[in-house]
Design a binder for these strands. Structure first.
Length: 422
DNA sequence: TCTGGGGTCCTAGGACCC
DNA sequence: TCTGGGGTCCTAGGACCC
């Protein structure tokens, strides 16, 4: 095993809850939870909230009373804030390592080249302190010889050692560490496979590392085989470049069930516009659109609750009017006046780079492009809600708009919502 | 009353072609 | 009685991630 290949995983602790704390010091040492869109489920918890037994993903209505009695601070998700804080964390990390793989809103991998001779624990602590100082966000860092092992080291840093840093380099260190990690905590092993692996008596990360590869290949698949190899310290996953998305989704649950077509058209038009924004930002064109309409899956057990349709575009496009037009066609085909809908969405499919655009003989694409560019500019300058197609209706107070009863200020991205200092 | 919103990769199987 | 076989493309679905 080569030791000149080292990966670090930097992961923000309880990221959304930590973001809320940065601008509201009264939340320090307090139990904090952050809810998903529509105030549906718990998606982030401070350590204090975890200690009170609040589990990840639990529906809020089930624990509301509990939160009240225990004075748990509850927040609606505030992606304007979290997204901006994420960028600050990532650019701070880039002061140390230019080549960053931003894996999610709160995690990044780096490859540490030529670091064999420095004290890695010291280096990692220096990174942690700097991120904390620049952004107020606490992070944990795991370092080892493959991405999966770096993930595992991070798990140990957070949950077992509670030191914030864990470096696994020697085989003995790695084996001791893997023995402490339950199989369902391994990166790449979800609930389904954990259950099946346990039937094979594979209960820990160490057992998976030592399992015969042919057994994994035969009863599972190549993805898990890679995971097993990675746990042995054989890197199978490289640091990845930023690649444009292959699909772009925009969907939401409604604040309340909807039956009337007019409201749902407004919602679908809004999702189409959000998806188009993302599409244009990454400079891609879409070739097909998937439109989805859902009823409440919990109320009608065993009945279909998801209705969907995929429609192609005549030509690859990033034109807001065209995408909205086709999305509405899809919606009208799905809609049944007798049903109550809880959620809708669109996904733009088969994306290709905009440079590959083929001219259309019959449509003046230049004119459409000018209109779209103008819309982009207005949104950029005056905010995302400043301009929209009429079919979306007025931006505020729509019947379909999601619940967001406990939202904090957008402290870092909105002039009207800065922190007051007295 | 109330149960998130994004994404990725891989595989199996059917359609179709020669 | 016998009714090819191999390749490719597409789609649906299953697994995973945060």
């Amino acid at each position: 095993m080569s030791t000149n290949c080292l990966f670090a995983l930097i992961d923000c602790n309880n990221f959304y809850a930590s973001c809320e704390r940065v601008f509201n010091p009264a939340l320090q040492q307090q139990p904090v939870v952050v809810l998903s869109n529509n105030d549906g489920c718990v998606i982030a918890r401070s350590d204090e909230a975890k200690a009170l037994g609040i589990s990840m993903g639990v529906p809020y209505f089930q624990i509301k009373a509990f939160c009240d009695t225990h004075q748990i601070k509850v927040f609606s998700s505030n992606y304007a804030l979290y997204g901006d804080m994420s960028q600050r964390v990532m650019s701070t990390l880039q002061l140390f390592e230019k080549n960053l793989e931003i894996y999610s809103i709160d995690e990044a991998f780096v490859q540490l080249n030529g670091c064999q001779h420095i004290n890695l624990t010291q280096y990692a602590n220096q990174i942690r302190q700097t991120v904390k100082q620049h952004t107020g966000i606490p992070v944990s860092i795991g370092i080892s010889t493959s991405k999966t092992l770096a993930k595992t080291a991070n798990y140990l840093a957070k949950r077992i050692l509670k030191s914030g840093v864990c470096v696994l380099s020697s085989p003995v260190e790695i084996n001791n560490a893997l023995a402490q990690v339950p199989i369902d905590e391994v990166w790449g092993v979800g609930a389904r496979w954990a259950k099946k692996l346990i039937q094979f008596n594979i209960n820990t990360a160490l057992a998976l590392a030592n399992a015969p590869i042919h057994l994994i290949r035969e009863h599972f698949n190549v993805v898990l085989e890679r995971t097993a190899r990675e746990l042995r310290g054989i890197p199978c996953l490289a640091l990845e470049d930023i690649t444009p998305k292959q699909n772009i989704m925009s969907s939401r649950s409604f604040g309340k069930p909807l039956q009337d077509l007019t409201s749902i058209i407004k919602a679908i038009s809004y999702y189409a516009a959000r998806a188009t924004e993302k599409l244009r930002q990454q400079q891609s064109l879409t070739q097909a659109i998937y439109v989805m309409l859902k009823t409440n899956r919990y109320s009608q057990k065993n009945l279909p609750y998801c209705y969907h349709i995929t429609l192609p575009f005549k030509y690859p496009t990033d034109d807001l009017c065209e995408i909205t037009r086709v999305a509405k066609i899809g919606l009208r085909k799905l809609y049944r006046p007798t049903l109550k809908y809880h959620k809708a969405g669109v996904m733009l499919l088969d994306l290709i780079p905009k440079q590959q655009q083929q001219g259309d003989l019959f449509i003046n694409t230049d004119q459409h492009e000018k209109l779209n560019q103008t819309i982009d500019r207005i949104k950029q300058r005056f905010g995302k809600t400043s301009i929209a197609l009429a079919t979306q209706g007025h931006a505020q107070h729509q019947t379909w708009q999601m619940k967001s009863a406990y939202k904090s200020f957008r402290y870092t991205t909105c002039w009207n919502e800065l922190v007051d200092v007295f």
